[in-house]
């Protein structure tokens, strides 16, 4: 049995539970502004992070980055406090949910961004730093299908290829750019675009855990060879609003499919229940602790 898969499963539930707790806090008026939840991309977040090394790799993310920040190893209590605007948050509450910046601890997460697509050139900078140091590290930009229509993304794809940067572009396609569907906003295929810039491209679906794992591994390995890669990962946006009730909380096709896969791999359902419960409880406890902290 692949013990790391069980850890990933627990982490997925950790992230989902964390986001659910944040959603409850938001509904109760305990979050300063709007929050954009990562609910639905947990499997992708965890698998991407799995292929990164916090000592040398750096990830920049979108406004919807709680999940990837946690998956990369950012201290969850500090993340929760930052989102809630509390003292002791990553930036003592100066940044907030859309501007998570990790500067300490064992995390490959660098920062998220309030401007759609703006994080992509920043990851090119992280890639340039890694290349200059000869660290074998990579810069990873995580963005959505909405950002994929930003010029910053196109420009950076070309720049990464001509400069041979160790850079990975990871596009989470959840089918919706805010409230505009991919079909409305985009006529061409995302991978075709990336390929035309000279990137190595892949498509995968976070509902298929082994394929998603394999594909992100290939993407990261390509980037590490200074052949910039582009991976389109299909993720689910499980709900469009930010208040999650118990029903929403449990409805996650990607995690359910992950669970089905694990059952075929020799994990019994009791083991999975224990892992899920552990992830859910840990996250809930952390967010609860953060809520007790002093306001920033």
């Amino acid at each position: 049995m692949d013990q790391k898969a069980l850890k990933h499963y627990e982490k997925c539930w950790f992230i989902r539970s964390f986001e659910a707790a944040i959603a409850r806090a938001a509904a109760a008026g305990k979050v300063p502004g709007l929050v954009h939840l990562s609910t639905g991309s947990e499997v992708a977040d965890v698998l991407l992070a799995h292929h990164l090394d916090w000592r040398r790799d750096k990830v920049t993310g979108s406004h919807r980055s709680h999940g990837i920040a946690l998956a990369c190893g950012t201290e969850p209590l500090d993340v929760a406090k930052e989102i809630l605007g509390k003292k002791g948050g990553l930036s003592d509450g100066l940044g907030g949910t859309q501007h998570l910046i990790a500067t300490s601890g064992e995390t490959s997460f660098l920062m998220s961004n309030g401007i759609v697509g703006a994080q992509v050139p920043l990851a090119a900078g992280a890639a340039l730093s890694a290349k200059s140091r000869g660290s074998d590290g990579i810069g990873v930009a995580v963005f959505g299908d909405g950002a994929a229509n930003q010029g910053a993304v196109f420009e950076t794809m070309n720049l990464a290829v001509v400069l041979k940067l160790p850079m990975l572009f990871v596009m989470y396609n959840n089918g919706m750019a805010q409230s505009t569907s991919v079909a409305q906003a985009t006529e061409s295929d995302f991978s075709d675009r990336a390929r035309s810039f000279g990137l190595n491209t892949w498509k995968t679906d976070s509902n298929d855990y082994p394929d998603c794992a394999r594909t992100l591994h290939q993407g990261a390995a390509s980037a590490r060879r200074s052949e910039p890669g582009f991976v389109e990962v299909k993720v689910t946006r499980d709900h469009g609003h930010y208040y999650a009730d118990g029903e929403d909380f449990d409805a996650s096709p990607a995690i359910e499919n992950f669970e089905k896969y694990l059952l075929t791999q020799g994990f019994n359902s009791k083991l999975l229940r224990v892992a899920k419960k552990s992830g859910v409880q840990k996250a809930a406890a952390i967010v609860a602790e953060a809520m007790e902290a002093a306001d920033a």
């Binding site: 050139p121 090119a124 900078g125 810069g139 010029g151 720049l159």
Partner: peptide
């Protein structure tokens, strides 16, 4: 050429790259 190089005419990408490089050690 590793430390001194030309960029495409893509100000958003290369100014952003400079910002990202500056916060990661360069």
């Amino acid at each position: 050429p590793a430390r001194v190089f030309d960029t495409p005419i893509s100000e958003t990408a290369f100014i952003g790259m400079a910002v990202g490089a500056a916060i990661t050690g360069l």
